Amino acid sequence: MENTLFDRTFRDSEGNIVIAQPPNLPLIVGIVASLLKLIVTTEEINLALDLVAFGSLYTWAWQELFEGVNYFRRALGLIALVALLVWKLQ
């Protein structure tokens, strides 16, 4: 099989096209904490959930950026990381 740009962008080491994967633990924790922030209105708990959500989503983005199975997943991690930092710095 040729090693084309398409292959490097969308295929993993086994030759499978990988765009979406089952979510891993940091992504699940980040999504659940973000959803709980919408439900819980207590200031202290909301702040704790915000920290947990940001930390887990940051961890997920960092892992995708450096350990993603293909260039698409790594680009997804970079975009998510930049978006998280921009969102927090506003």
Rank of each mutant, 00 (worst) to 15 (best):
E43W: 01
I19C: 08
L27N: 14
L85D: 02
Y71L: 15
D12M: 03
L36P: 07
L84R: 03
I17D: 12
I17L: 11
N24D: 15
Y71S: 08
D7W: 02
Y71E: 13
G77F: 05
E64T: 03
F66S: 08
S56L: 04
S56V: 00
F10H: 02
E14Q: 15
I45K: 08
V82H: 00
I31A: 13
E2N: 15
Y71R: 04
P23K: 11
N70M: 04
I39A: 14
A20P: 00
Q21R: 15
F10Q: 04
R73E: 06
A48Q: 02
L35S: 12
T9H: 05
P26Y: 07
D50K: 07
D7F: 05
P23Y: 09
M1K: 13
I28C: 09
A53S: 12
A80S: 06
Y58C: 11
T41N: 13
S34N: 14
P23G: 12
L47R: 07
W87C: 05
A20V: 14
T4Q: 10
I31P: 02
L78M: 09
Y71I: 10
L47Y: 04
M1D: 10
L27T: 15
L65D: 01
F10M: 06
L76S: 11
N70I: 00
E64M: 12
Q63S: 11
G77H: 03
Y58L: 13
W60Q: 10
T42N: 14
L51Q: 03
T4K: 09
L65Y: 06
D12E: 10
L84Y: 02
A83C: 12
I17F: 10
E2R: 11
L65I: 09
P23R: 14
K88H: 14
Y71K: 11
A75L: 12
P22M: 10
D7H: 12
V18N: 08
N46I: 01
V69R: 09
L76N: 01
R74P: 06
L81A: 11
L89R: 13
G68I: 03
L78K: 00
R8C: 07
V52F: 01
Q90R: 13
A75S: 08
A61R: 01
W60L: 04
N3M: 15
Q21I: 09
V32P: 03
A33S: 15
G15L: 06
A83D: 11
Q63W: 05
T42K: 13
D50I: 00
A61P: 06
S34K: 07
V40F: 05
L38A: 14
N3I: 15
L65C: 11
F6M: 13
G77Q: 04
W87Y: 14
G30M: 07
E14W: 05
E14S: 15
T41P: 01
L57K: 01
V18P: 10
I39F: 12
L49N: 04
S34W: 02
F72Y: 12
Q90W: 12
L85Q: 06
L38S: 11
L25F: 13
D50S: 05
Q90L: 10
A61D: 04
S34A: 15
Y58H: 06
L85C: 04
R11G: 03
L51F: 02
L78H: 00
V32F: 09
T41R: 10
S13C: 06
T41Q: 06
A33N: 09
G77N: 02
P26R: 09
L49W: 01
E43G: 02
Q63G: 07
A33K: 09
E44P: 00
G30D: 10
